[in-house]
Design a protein around this nucleic acid. Structure first.
Lengths: 210, 210
DNA sequence: GAAGTTCTGTAGCGATGGCTACGCAAATAC
DNA sequence: GTATTTGCGTAGCCATCGCTACAGAACTTC
């Protein structure tokens, strides 16, 4: 029952249409992409879109899922494949720099930029994306705790603040604040961020000040 | 000719109405805020809004300008008032952490979050905000160059990459990519970001690796 | 008072949003 | 072939969008 189905067969490539929809949502965001835009780019008519994907919301969900398995997969891969956590985070950031500026697709991260504008009636869209970002921060935190347990991080390191920090490097302090990070978390993250300041070699080793 | 004008006087407080509009745009973004939302919150009818502010676009411009002079003023102030550049950046980040999470207004930065979703017909809105962010990065860079000249930064420091880095901490690497940062800039910024990783004290001084 | 000017509220304009009814086209089942 | 199933295209529904015409209300000027 894989290939033989009754009725008129679909006349367009569902995967290709999904790829087109991904590019549009990535570029213009959820609200900025209309059904008319989508049907135009996918080369199909509205009824075909609704028959194949449900509604705009379901199509967007499918796009985000697909994105997580393709363009967005480098993060988890980098963190998983490097044995040293520091190398994992370094690779993740470096690959983000490359991916976010690739000319082959819209700039930045779809999850971050596709729904920072949300009207009251699309608040659930925003909730879905926010949940993903929050889960990502938790994932960072768990890995940092694991690094701490393995001695890659000094004991007593504020892994929560470090997790928020790395998320902030990727998503920005502003985005973090909108997603519910507390003042204290952000302030500690900012403190860590200051460690990147290159101390004049004369003064000595570079540790973050209290 | 300050107080005495002919005709029926305005029956609402223009400043208070502007403050309400600021909160709405801050919370929901440009597209996510409708004229109906605005008139409801401002307590006026559409014709009054248009008579007092022009159109939605002009109202938003006025809101952003007002924001820059009030909520957004802490950045320049922190950088200006601290004599040591490092202290200036540290204070700016710390105050951003506080401001972005203040319960007295929407979270995050209005300039960053109010128009990441932009439809083709509102591309000029996005251009305006992007110009402000790009100018901000340039301001960071100039201050870093100044710091370098005064010996607060080691000579040969990549001030451009550092400027992008600080902007990235505030706005996120994703946002930077969407605003036109190059792959190389983002990769170098990510390298600097790694300096925040706390080295185990046993191993020695913490410098970012090449 | 009358005239002139400016703001206010109702009511609605044209355009576009997401979405779908309906009839036809293209396949399988018998 | 006929019947059944499913996708396609036109054409349009209803809601909301930004915005405004119009008439009356509230002021200053004379």
């Amino acid at each position: 029952m894989t290939t033989t189905k009754r009725g008129r067969p679909r006349s367009f490539d569902r995967e290709a249409a999904l790829a087109q929809a991904t590019l549009l949502f990535w570029q213009h965001g959820y609200e900025g992409t209309s059904i008319s835009d989508l049907t135009g780019a996918m080369g199909i008519s509205p009824p075909s879109l609704y028959a194949a994907f449900g509604d705009k919301r379901a199509l967007f969900t499918e796009v985000v899922d697909r994105y997580g398995g393709t363009f967005g997969a480098f993060m988890e891969k980098a963190l998983d494949q490097e044995s040293d956590p520091r190398a994992g985070f370094a690779r993740m950031l470096d690959e983000a720099a490359v991916s976010y500026t690739s000319p082959e697709h819209p700039a930045g991260c779809l999850v971050i930029s596709a729904a920072t504008n949300y009207s009251p009636q699309t608040a659930d869209v925003e909730r879905t994306l926010r949940a993903r970002r929050v889960a990502n921060v938790r994932s960072f935190e768990a890995r940092l705790r694991d690094a701490e347990a393995r001695g890659s991080l000094p004991e007593g390191a504020d892994t929560r603040a470090l997790a928020v920090y790395f998320a902030a490097v990727v998503q920005g302090m502003s985005q973090q604040a909108r997603d519910g990070a507390t003042t204290a978390e952000l302030r500690r993250a900012a403190e860590y961020a200051m460690a990147a300041w290159p101390e004049p070699p004369a003064r000595g080793a570079g540790r973050a000040p209290a």
